[in-house]
Write a protein that binds this DNA or RNA. Structure first.
Lengths: 340, 340
DNA sequence: GCAAGTTCTGGAAACGTTTCCAGTAACGTT
DNA sequence: AACGTTACTGGAAACGTTTCCAGAACTTGC
């Protein structure tokens, strides 16, 4: 491997000069620059990132800490983020975390050890204390969740999310406005301080605002976001336990798809016997039968916001910012007005 | 930040001793080891990866070079790979590549620059020359594709794939054995040296083996693997152009889903008027209506094989290996025997 | 009691950069 | 002609590790 010394020797200049050329410093004559660049090309020189990182005590790497979930929405988000980060000349490290691990602790450790310049958190639960949050000493962004439960100062963190509670409420409102009153909810959990809980609250908000009493027997918890088998079975149990509902609000598209299958297999037609509405707006769920009525998260914009926010914080030491994106209703054939 | 010197000073030993403790070298007394480890804990010491990488001129990082595709199958595969790689103590870097870029060139460059210890290639086309392949001087694995077109020595590369041609042939065989003879194919491309081409060949193999003449008008090329809108439209064009087919072979689950929607919207019921069979076996397509008949790729095993193969090559300098996984038929409701 | 191990430790070089500081040469200004 | 600038360059320290080499202290075998 040829290094900066070889280049210097080959050109008859000092290594500091070579370094200056390589880093686009202004104080170097055109002639020398030319000469060095030619040598770099001829000798096929490739800079050593480790050495650079060591002396700068910093890297060019942003970590993406993904917790648990296996969701097409996340895949798309990650795809957008990777593209943007790579395009801007940075590198993205992917780290998988178990649900039991403490993301802030792991993040802090990684940041020091690997001299990360930023961290993106994906798929956690936002219930940190200011003290915990302070562990992270590099710019970071919480993707798809925000400070809804705690009392953190907005200056202390960045986030990109939708208003989960409001969106859920809107989804359920849609059903109510079509005459539905017995509306079941299909969710992951109801009290795990994650977006599941928020969407559950939105569901209750909507009921309350229309004077519909909350009925716990209409709540179906699958305990998962992505295991479609479990969701299918949970829906089946709901149907067998309580068959009076005329609509289902699923907190994610994938859940809705499993639910529709379960309903159909139990002899209940969607949408004629039961309407279904969800949140996510996957491209995929435009092509299911029936096409899913869902609240679309602007995944492209959200991914871009994640990448841009963290890069801005890194490059310009910009302020922390919280983005809340609007969702839009995409009407499919999975809902119908309640007859009679 | 406390470093190895601080630890040494604090313990009254040499830095080389501290290094030995940290790297589990045997030549160190229990007493010293104890003392050092205590100091590490007390002073909250975190080793500097850059320094280590520099002197070792190697890192702990494996790169995953993903080209183009946005496919749930890939997402799942990546998920499995990340988990396994992280679990084994290595780090995974994600790099996005445009279809126009040369993956081997980019890989070689990255490997040198970032002192990568391995590269996983995902989503390319396998038409490299031995010379090109030789550019990569770290262990690498080609995920989901293998040397089917070229004439590379098996010792020169590792791969994890299914037999795409055979699998496609089997899919079409299934349709033929149900009496179908006018079978359309829905694909990305027919001659791009990728798995699309292989599956297209398998389609033709099946026809030929049953004495069914190949009819070009039954070929629908969407030019994409993942843009469901384009696939939907391509299917629509096929239907309008040529309505005599009684079955469709889609080379990927997602394509089949878009196709079913398109057929339905054109008034052709699946499976009564048209059978559909695909390749992938996504969890998702078990829950569509009708449930998709598809050839399941063992994604979990394949991801594991990718991770294990590269780690084995890295740690034990193991031989290059080519894995070809078997697919299994999962029968859903999307096919019916041809009547009359 | 002495040579030959054995076991542990310390010193120092090396890895390939960046960056600070000092220095030289050329140039314009007074 | 002396001087201050400007434009460029070189030397050397520093970043935090690992690892090689040599040496000290202690054990063992005769």
């Amino acid at each position: 491997m040829t290094n900066i010394k070889d280049i210097a020797r080959h050109c008859g200049v000092a290594i500091s000069t070579v370094s200056r050329v390589l880093n686009d410093h202004p104080d170097v004559s055109d002639e020398t620059r030319e000469k060095v660049l030619r040598a770099v090309d001829e000798l096929n020189y490739i800079p050593n990132t480790s050495a650079r990182n060591l002396v700068r005590s910093s890297s060019d790497t942003i970590a993406l800490l993904v917790k648990g979930v296996n969701n097409p929405f996340f895949s798309k988000l990650i795809k957008v983020i990777v593209r943007e980060i790579t395009l801007r000349g940075y590198t993205l490290e992917l780290h998988h975390m178990d649900t039991s691990e403490d993301e802030l602790l792991v993040g802090a450790q990684l940041a020091n050890e690997r001299k990360l310049i930023g961290i993106l958190f994906l798929g956690g639960r936002f219930n940190y204390s200011p003290k915990e949050l302070a562990l992270i000493n590099v710019p970071s962004v919480f993707c798809t969740y925000t400070n809804t439960f705690g009392t953190l100062d907005a200056a202390a963190y960045s986030s990109v999310a939708i208003d989960d509670r409001q969106t859920a409420r809107f989804a359920v409102d849609t059903l109510v406005s079509l005459g539905h009153r017995r509306i079941a909810i299909l969710t992951d959990n109801t009290d795990d301080k994650s977006i599941s809980e928020l969407r559950f609250q939105g569901y209750k908000d909507a009921l309350a605002s229309h004077g519909i009493p909350f009925d716990p027997s209409l709540v179906a918890c699958a305990g998962t976001f992505s295991d479609m088998g479990a969701i299918y079975r949970t829906t089946g149990e709901l149907i067998e336990r309580e068959c009076s509902f005329t609509a289902v609000f699923a907190i994610a598209d994938l859940m809705a798809i499993a639910a529709i299958k379960s309903l159909t297999d139990h002899g209940r037609r969607v949408p004629e016997d039961c309407s279904v509405v969800a949140i996510d707006g996957l491209e995929l769920s435009e092509y299911t039968l029936p096409m899913l009525t869902t609240l679309v998260q602007p995944v492209e914009e959200m991914g871009l916001a994640c990448a841009k926010t963290i890069i801005e914080r890194i490059e310009k030491r910009g302020e922390n910012r919280q983005f809340t994106f609007d969702t839009t209703l995409r009407s499919g054939g999975s809902v119908l007005p309640l007859e009679g």
